[in-house]
Design a protein around this nucleic acid. Structure first.
Lengths: 68, 68
DNA sequence: TGCATAATGATCTTCAGGAGGACATTTTGA
DNA sequence: TCAAAATGTCCTCCTGAAGATCATTATGCA
């Protein structure tokens, strides 16, 4: 499975969903879905905006985890 | 920008688009788009299948690159 | 070298789900 | 306590992945 660490990254920096949405320009609903890991599809543009804003790489945001 | 290294990873392993499509179960058109970096949106399920098949992590497949 | 087969590129339709917005509810901090 | 901010939720719109098909190109082997 693919795990999204947005909530963890945001928690570490004590960021709010509105902050991230406002600063990245990404729709709040989209941030909410990624935060709660209910998204099943992502725009590369969204990943780009998050990596830039959070100053991280794609691997920090998404992780491949073997599910057994 | 977000760079997709699928073509590089496939090249290293000398894999064909049809092979990847067949083995991962991902639609060939989707593999083609990622290969040529014309995709702007990705299913997490697709990333999952590719990471599993290529035995790599998300960060190996996608990279955040500052464009200036 | 010729030819059958496989691989790729390109295009069309369908449809799931993200984008964006609106409203309700909850949380906050002054 | 109460107003503003933040979050949750629901709705509609629209993009692009999925899936299929056809044309073209590359391949391997007899």
């Amino acid at each position: 499975m693919i795990k999204c660490h947005l909530s963890k990254l945001m928690g570490e920096k004590k960021l709010k969903i509105v902050d991230v949405a406002r600063e990245t320009g990404v729709n709040r609903g989209t941030i909410t879905r990624l935060y709660h890991e209910t998204a099943s599809r992502v725009e590369l543009e969204t990943i780009d905006a998050l990596c830039r804003y959070l100053d991280c790489d794609v691997g920090d945001l998404f992780e491949f985890k073997e599910d057994r």
